[in-house]
Each structure stands twice: as C-alpha cells, then as structure tokens.
Nucleic acid binder design. Structure first.
Lengths: 345, 345
DNA sequence: CGCGTTTACGTCGTTCGTAACGATA
DNA sequence: TATCGTTACGAACGACGTAAACGCG
C-alpha cells in the first residue's frame, strides 16, 4: 500500500469511477492508474470496486470502508505538505475561497488586496455558490475557506470566525409611497407588496421567510436575483420593493432606503469557516487575519489550532469596514515568527 | 513523500532518534533508513532533526509538527490494513491487552478462552501495568485494548465499555478479633490497624485513601503487593489486615472475609477502553463481546463506531461472572455478517 | 465500431544491501 | 577504538508509458 495507490483510488472515486478521467486529472495514463488500482486491491486482498465485465460500476462494501480512511490519510498527507510549504516560506500557492456573491463583492475585496500585498504570487480562486454548496466544497477539499452569512449559530463542524453583523435594508424608487412614510417601516407595510430579493430568500428556511411567518404574514417574493446590484436594478425598473443586504447599498439617485423598525428583519452574521484538522497555508491565515481585524492574530491562531474561543464581540458592518480600512493602511502581518526568511525568498 | 518514509521517520523518533535501533526494529539496514530520512527531508524541504555533527540530537521544530500529522496518517494506514485483514477474514493476528494484575487474573481468562475458541490462531499478549501506564500504552499504539478499574467516571478520550462493578473486601486470619465482631465492619475499625493492600492504593488519589481521608482517618498501609494472592499470603502470615478486590476472594481455610458496612469503601467499576478512531480486528471485537456479555454485540458495534450509548446497566461482579459463564457455554459470535467465509478459512 | 479497462512489453528510475568513509566520545 | 550516521556502488525491483487486446453498448 502506497500513498500513490490511495491517491489514485480516491481520484477514481471522485471522478465517478472513471479511470480515464481520473488519469488526466492526475496527469497520468489510464494504464498506470489501472495498475495502481490493481496493486492496491491486491495489497489489501479484496476488490474495492464492483465490476461488470471490465467496467467499474460502483464501490464495493470494502471500497466504501477503505475510502473513508483513505480520505483522512490523504488529508493528513496534504497537511504535511502544507506544513512543509509553510516552513519553507514558499511564496507561491493556491487559495480556493467559496462564498456567496454578496460577500465576494463587499467583504472580500479589501482583505484580498491586503493579503495580496504580502503574497503577490498566490493565486486566488473565488468560487461563488449558495450556502450549502459552499459548505460541500469545504468538506470535500475543493475550497480552503468559506464565507457565508446566517441568522443563527454557525455550523459547529467547522472552525467559525465571526466577521461582522449586518441587516437587510428595503430599497424603493424615489417617489414610492414607502419613501415618504414619515415613520419607520414595519413588516406589515411589506406584506401586500411584490418583493425583489436574493434567490436564497425563497427557501422556506431563510430568515426572511421565517420573519414573515412569525408575524403571520406571507412574503410575496416576485423576483429574485443573485446579487444586490441586480436587485437594485430591478427595483429601479419598478418590478417591486427591493430587500438587500446593507453592504449592497450605494449612493444611488434613483433609489432610497427608508428607515426600518428596529427588528423588522433579523440581523445576520457573516462567518468565516475553516475545516477542522486541516493545516492552513500562511497566506490563508493572512487572509483570515485581514478579514477579522477585530481579533488578535494570536487569538485567531489559537482558535484554529485548539478551538479556543475568541474574546472580541462581533462588530456591525460599518465598524467592521472602518477597522478593515485602518488595517489596510497599516499593512497585515502574515504569520508570527520567521520574518527573516521571507525576505530572502 | 511516501508511507515508507513516514514510517521510517516515526520509528526513528520512537527509538529515541537512533537510526540503528530503528533499522533493526523495521528489519532494514541503517543505510536504508538513513536514506529514507534524507529523502523525506529533501521532499519536505526542511530538516526534521536537530543534528550535532552527524548525530541526531533531537527533533527540530518542523519535525515536531510533522510528527503529529505523520502519527495520524500512519494510524489511518494501520486502520486500512486492519480493515483489509477483517474483510479477508484473516484468521491470524496479534492482540495486545494492557491491564492490571487483578483484571488479568480474574476477568480476562474466561473471555480469552471464549475468544480463542473461535480464533485459535490469534496470538495474545497481556501486558501488565499500572493504570496510567496502560493508558499510555493505549495511546501510542502498543496496546489494542485496556482493562482497568476506577471509582469515578471513565476517561472520555477513549471508548469506554463498562464491564462490572465490584467492591473491596477485608480479609483477616481465622481467629482475628475482626472475624468475630458480631456486626458489620466500619471504617473506624480499620483505622488503627496495619493494612496490606495493592500498591496502587498507596497513591493519595486512590479511592481507598480518599475514603479514609473523607472519614477523617488515616490508612496505615504497611505492606503492599501487586496481586490479591500475595496480599492474602501476607495477611495469612500476620503482616496485617488484608484489603483485596472481591474477585480475589477464594475458598481459604486460614482466612475469613467478615461482612462490611454497606459503604465502607467506594465501589469500583472495571472498564474496557478502546482507542477512538482505530479499527479493531474482528477477534478484538470478539474479545470485547466476550468481556461484556450484558451488551448486545450490535450495541457494542454502534458504541465503538459512532459512540452511541449502551442501554444496559452495569452488573456487579457476581452477576457479571454468572453471565460470562453462560455465554461461554453458548459460544461467542465473533462478528455479525460473514459467517460462511469464516468456516471455510 | 467507440468506449473504457486490462494486459504485454520495454525503459527508466528508485530502492536496497554491502561496504567503505567520516566524525564523535 | 567503538559507535553511529552518511556516502558510494552494483543488483534487483517496481513504476511508467506505448501499444495492443478484450468486452460491452
């Protein structure tokens, strides 16, 4: 049994039991992979795949059991590799970030910019997706970190760093009757109107739906879009009353955001999620530190390594953004220790 | 980076940074191991050991970090190997049991006998040791399972199967005044006497010491021994009043065990401990099932695999032993499924 | 016949053991 | 000088790629 064999096995499984596909993903030949698999099966003494004739039709019972352990084994191999890259102060690298559009558009750019200043040779891939999709990317290793928002507690099977709290705002065209109501908007004011909001707010579990349901009202979400710019455009076009994250508000002559009753819609928290038990490259940590300037880097390290809780409260969007800007000017220290080597490359 | 390299690295560390020693433990040559290490270090791009001249003086900072992950990686490799052995219904194998003398003498034999009936080709090593010593063996892989007793809750970082509850008994020579007291013994009756008991009861944290301290008394443990037979022999020789586990009582013309006040000394529970996240060979599970006949094998499986709690209460020593005898007669089913293959070898 | 897996074969790289070397206490 | 780690060299093994064979839709 070798690491190569296990890696081959895992890749074949992830390619839908297609050796040919797995081979090109691994930059190898079908023949080679086929033999790796045959060797692994002979080393373990049992078939890992169900086969009809020569085609792989699915995992065998043994294959499923081995797969679970092979995943963890290879994850540790990746960890050791990452560890070594960090220790060598390797400057190049790849960072996969899975997040929703709103975060990618409003929270990520300044932090990315700050990280990139210290780590110019790091390639960053931002992969948009809905909440559960990003989480799936995190668990199967396609993403290194996830940014997402929710109104409840964060998922506990990952390391969660709270970034900021934010609220939704209602936007209407200038001249709309809600723009000159003379008092803060209540939920009932929205009950009979066609709404334009995020696609995710359609799902019955969304905090918007739950807020309406709790008040005995029904939300009529007439149009959905993936991002705030589109929602505002549709609102401007008169398709309905827009509900967007406050981060997506912008100076806009045609739209106004009237004041809201304090608890019109529940506040959301934006979380940064990291997989447990996975070693983070130093530039990944640099991005985390840039995204969470309210936390001392040492506390962040301790949270990631040992799950120790953070001491700072969660700021709201405006103060978070102010802190972010201040940190950008100051520059971000990437990792404690080893400042000398980094300069020599 | 290969599994062999990591295994070499780990073995070198476990042999006290001695390549020569590690080589003979791995049935390889010094030269080969030295090269494996050199290759690993070059693959990772950093030194894993501190060296003075050519001698390995200790782990480097990088080495310590890599070691932790290498341990988990190799543990998963062992798991896969174990899994494969189980799936192949491999009949041969090795089982390391770390336990105290009392358990090895009184709890283990019938269960071992039952397991051996189904698994005659399994070599069993029983390694005696004190409580903390056995736990250390468990965590660093020298032992597969541990049997130990305690008066409190079991350690939570392992899978714990409760086996039975037991009490200590006081033994005195026939004709001793405590033998004809006419009422149950109280703790105060023992306060002024020289005691003979287990070596572990000397430590201030032992439940015996704590029981005396709670009553404002001091235990005068004059003689200690490792096993009940010796304690009874010393008691018979008049060295003091014996305190032994009730399992160690035996028909003995020269000694009597007078009745005790109900809570003279706290009851102990004997636990079977298994490491989390380590796959158990089927014969290991057979031994567990033989040791815990009060639990359904399916429940035991679920406890080991997913940490699901057991439904049965903890029996006392006498009813446990009765259940054990009944199970021995009936024979022990080793593992669910695959009964056909096992017969064909 | 296309698709995907397996097998056959030749080449190359790697590993391993023996043995010599270097360095230390 | 005994001990331990590293280096040198030759033999054997294993991995990989090209190419052909096999079985199924």
């Amino acid at each position: 049994m070798t690491l190569t064999q296990l890696r081959s096995f895992l890749t074949i499984v992830e390619c839908g039991h297609n050796i040919t596909l797995a081979a090109q993903r691994l930059h190898a030949t079908q023949s080679g992979l086929s033999k790796q698999l045959a060797q692994l099966e002979s080393a373990l003494g049992c078939q890992l795949f169900e086969r009809r004739a020569r085609a792989l039709t699915g995992l065998s019972d043994a294959g499923r059991q081995v797969l679970a352990h092979a995943r963890r084994l290879l994850a540790e191999a990746d960890n050791i590799q990452t560890l070594a890259d960090n220790l060598r102060s390797e400057r190049r690298g790849l960072l996969h970030i899975a997040t929703t559009h709103t975060q990618a558009r409003h929270a990520l750019p300044p932090a990315l910019q700050a990280m990139k200043r210290d780590w110019p040779d790091v390639a960053v891939h931002v992969v948009p997706g809905e909440d559960d999709d990003t989480l799936r990317q995190l668990v199967d290793g396609r993403a290194d970190l996830v940014l997402l928002s929710g109104s409840g507690a964060p998922p506990t099977d990952h390391v969660a760093v709270p970034l900021y709290r934010w609220r939704r705002r209602v936007v209407v065209p200038t001249g709309h009757r809600l723009a000159a109501l003379g008092r803060p908007l209540r939920l009932r004011d929205l009950a009979d109107l066609r709404l334009v909001s995020y696609a995710s707010s359609r799902s019955p579990g969304s905090s918007l739906q739950r807020a309406f349901a709790a008040a005995g009202l029904a939300a009529d979400i007439a149009v959905t879009a993936r991002d705030g710019d589109l929602i505002r455009a549709y609102t401007r076009a008169g398709l309905g009353v827009g509900i967007v994250a406050e981060m997506a508000l912008d100076a806009d002559a045609d739209l106004v955001a009237p004041p809201l009753a304090p608890d019109l819609l529940p506040a959301c928290t934006t979380w940064l999620l990291l997989p447990r038990d996975r070693v983070l490259r130093d530039f990944g940590f640099a991005l985390v530190a840039a995204l969470a300037p309210q936390h001392a880097p040492l506390e962040l390290r301790r949270l990631i390594a040992h799950g120790e809780p953070l001491s700072q409260p969660i700021p709201d969007w405006h103060s978070w953004r102010a802190a972010r800007v201040a940190t950008d000017r100051r520059g971000v220290r990437s990792a404690p220790r080893r400042p000398a080597r980094a300069a020599t490359r």
